[in-house]
Design a protein around this nucleic acid. Structure first.
Length: 447
RNA sequence: GUGGAUGUAGCUCAGCAGGUUAGAGCGUCGGAUUGUGGUUCCGAAGGUCGCCGGUUCGAGCCCGGUCUUCCACCCCA
């Protein structure tokens, strides 16, 4: 039997799993410092909850889970003979794997609104699934680390989330640029260019500025139905610096509001000194479909590694509106843990002792000594040392080799001679030095 | 979803007009060394050449399909 893994999924060996756990715990600690509480939601959601929330593209990338039982018998016969996949799907699959953590969170808030308090600040670190074509740093199963606050319009939270980004990446040692924009500014730009209904077309195009250049953006906008004159106007506007832009934008209601919001966020941040570069970037156009206010994105601020965005987020005026609960604003950010992991790997930012699993390994020369070894490791564990005992008094060389493979810093050897004196031979594996130590003093010696 | 590349030992890679038993380094295991690992020396194991089919007297190599991984789109973390 040949075994394999589904496309876009991975196993994690101990060395990787340890690094991932470390990464998640670092992120989680920061969330907790800022007063966020954890929640968990199921891997499976009803497709009715998920469908239509991520656009047409998103619906295609949703993993659907086949109903149990004789699902074909209950399917629409006409749809089956027509081979109409989209109609058949709704008959044979009522559940799907979650695509992100935000939509399930919105569902969660609606369902538990009477058990929650507001503003409600939660974090959630769980895997999500997308039937995307895999690439480097892009998987079908991956973790998202989300922090959101719902039930408040205060721009303090925008500032707070920026601070969380700054704190986490500083703590991990990754230099980043935190880019901030506001959807109302983008709305102001299309309004002042005379094409207020072309917001999406414009943002999709200018998001690619770095990649396809000014002419490419112009072409794309024209192709999407923006008249060339208006498109040129847009291009000029997005290349203005902040002060000039403010003059242009304050002529429109949306633009003025967006500018005011961004400036207020900046006021909150004035007193603190971020470790990473913070920028107002009016070309930032990510995830515009549901954001209504500020939007965030994290870009690497080093060219030692090439990697796309390490995180993103924004404010949505009506987080739960699609589920029937109005007036529930939210703002949140997400960390792209998989990409952050890859960046940390390439930049070698992992703590050095991360691969150390044991402080000490006990080796025994015979069965009697092995019993004494069992007692010794028990005592050492009570003393909060990570200690283990080799399972049997094997050939000594083999035991030593195991200790070496594990990378333990200390080895305690119990042979008949040592046992008689109630001692062990304690060996420092990096220097090779060894000495006889009373069994009672082992913990103290290696601490 | 579209277009393009890729796949040989656990890992990194050789291989040849298409021609018997497919190689190397590293790693693994055993021994030199029955109370001492990481160095050294000796030896061994390990492959349906991604999978299925086709062409051929003969395929790891050529052709088709399929899967995986990677790259560019799309989109995103």
């Amino acid at each position: 039997m040949k075994v394999s893994l589904p496309k876009g999924t991975r196993d994690f060996l101990p060395a990787q799993a340890r690094k991932r756990k470390y990464l998640f715990s670092q992120i989680e600690q920061v969330f907790q410092y800022f007063g966020y509480v954890p929640i968990e939601t199921p891997v499976l959601e009803n497709l009715s909850t998920l469908m239509g929330k991520y656009g047409e593209e998103g619906d295609n990338l949703l993993f659907k889970v086949l109903n149990n039982g004789d699902f074909l018998a209950k399917a629409d016969a006409q749809a089956l003979t027509d081979r109409d996949s989209s109609r058949v799907v709704s008959d044979i699959a009522k559940r799907g794997l979650r695509y992100d953590l935000t939509v399930p969170f919105a569902r969660f808030v609606v369902m538990h609104q009477h058990e929650l308090y507001f503003p409600f600040k939660r974090y959630q670190i769980q895997p999500v699934w997308r039937a995307d074509r895999p690439q480097r740093g892009r998987y079908q199963e991956f973790y998202q680390c989300d922090v959101d606050v719902v039930g408040s319009e205060s721009l303090m939270y925008e500032a707070e989330l920026i601070q969380i980004y700054d704190t986490v990446f500083h703590k991990l040692g990754i230099p980043v640029e935190i880019r901030v924009n506001n959807r109302k500014i983008l709305a102001g730009i299309v309004e002042s260019a005379g094409v207020p209904d072309k917001l999406t077309e414009m943002t999709v195009a200018i998001d690619k500025l770095d990649k396809i250049g000014v002419n490419g953006v112009l072409e794309e906008m024209v192709r999407k139905g923006i008249p060339e004159g208006n498109a040129l106007h847009i291009l000029n506007t997005i290349q203005l610096d902040w002060d000039e832009l403010v003059n242009t934008l304050t002529q429109t209601i949306s633009g003025a509001k967006g500018v005011a919001e961004l400036e207020q966020v900046w006021e909150y941040l004035e007193g603190i000194s971020p470790n990473n570069h913070l920028s107002k970037d009016i070309r930032l156009a990510r995830g515009l479909n549901y954001y209504t206010g500020c939007i965030f994105e994290i870009a690497l601020a080093t060219d030692q590694v090439q990697m796309g965005s390490l995180g993103g987020g924004g404010r949505y005026a009506e987080l739960t509106g699609v589920f029937g609960l109005d007036n529930m604003p939210g703002v949140g950010i997400s960390f792209g843990a998989e990409r952050i992991y890859d960046v940390m790997d390439e930049l070698q930012l992992w703590p050095k002792d991360l691969d150390r699993q044991l402080d000490l390994l006990v080796l025994a020369m015979d069965d009697v000594c092995h019993r004494a070894g069992f007692k010794l490791v028990s005592d050492l564990r009570l003393a909060h040392l990570r200690a283990d005992l080799y399972p049997q008094p094997d050939k000594f060389k083999k035991q030593m080799k195991y200790a070496d493979t594990l990378g333990v810093p200390w080895v305690a050897i119990i042979g008949p001679e040592e046992l008689q004196e109630q001692e062990v031979t304690l060996k420092n594996m990096s220097t090779g030095e060894q000495s006889r130590v009373s069994i009672r003093e082992v913990a103290a010696k290696i601490q």
